[in-house]
Design a protein around this nucleic acid. Structure first.
Length: 228
DNA sequence: GCGACAG
DNA sequence: ATCTTGTCGC
């Protein structure tokens, strides 16, 4: 019911972020790694056919086995604008989450949360709209500079806010000698815990298992919805 | 004004 | 994100 609403223009989107951002909860630690459910969400596009497919995959956090999968298909209603990614992805992601019967638990997003130009990235946005604890794990640097973290798994370096000197995220090495991922808080979780979850979920690969499952599922669903 | 810029 | 061959390695 959400993907049918009219998308905002860019100026409206930015002011909407500034409004919604006041509802982010930053004083909760969040669930412990390895307990309950953890859900990965991701999106794939076919700009040609104007199609977007989102996937949500629920894992048992202790065993990292799949509990439930869901997908949703929609139309691309918002362009890619750095800083406004949520408006492009969230409608379809919400539709996929609504199709789940299991409790999503903690939601792991592709992209940023607090470490965003207006401190309200995709992970923050999804957290506020769903009320679920969320965190963001991005593959590439965005608006904050950082020093390279140490070479060992678990090494990290802070992403600092240029203005107030606050730590808004971390470049985290999930695999030895491999490019780090960029972790930031979304909603109802601490940065320490977000990093602990990321390391737990990325025991074997650079990216969290949640992201890997969601990524392959939405690509698979897109190709099945597009061509043979 | 110019460059940088999650997915 | 997506476009894409071969290639190195477990």
């Amino acid at each position: 019911m959400n993907q049918h609403s009219t998308p905002p223009d860019e100026a409206t989107a930015r002011s909407l972020q500034d409004t919604l951002r006041t509802r982010v909860v930053l004083d909760e630690t969040g669930p412990a790694p390895g307990t309950g459910h953890v859900t990965g969400v991701d999106v794939a596009y076919d700009d040609e056919r104007d199609i977007v497919v989102a996937a949500a995959v629920v894992l048992d956090a202790a065993t990292l086995t799949v509990v439930e999968e869901a997908t949703a298909t929609g139309r691309v209603t918002f362009p890619y604008v750095p800083g406004l990614l949520a408006f492009r992805e969230i409608p379809t992601v919400l539709a996929a989450l609504e199709r789940l019967t299991a409790d999503p638990g903690l939601v792991v997003c592709d992209g940023y949360g607090l470490a965003h130009p207006r401190r309200f990235g995709l992970a923050s946005h999804l957290g506020v709209l769903t009320g679920l604890p969320t965190l963001g794990v991005a593959k590439n640097p965005f608006t904050f500079h950082h020093e390279p973290p140490g070479p060992a798994r678990g090494d990290f370096s802070p992403l600092f806010d240029a203005d107030d000197g606050t730590e808004v995220g971390r470049a985290l090495r999930t695999q030895p000698g491999v490019k780090p991922v960029f972790v930031s808080v979304g909603h109802r979780i601490s940065l320490d815990n977000a990093c602990a979850h990321t390391l737990w979920l990325a025991a074997s690969y650079r990216q969290p298992e949640t992201t890997r499952h969601a990524d392959s599922l939405c690509r698979r669903a897109l190709s099945e919805a597009t061509g043979v």
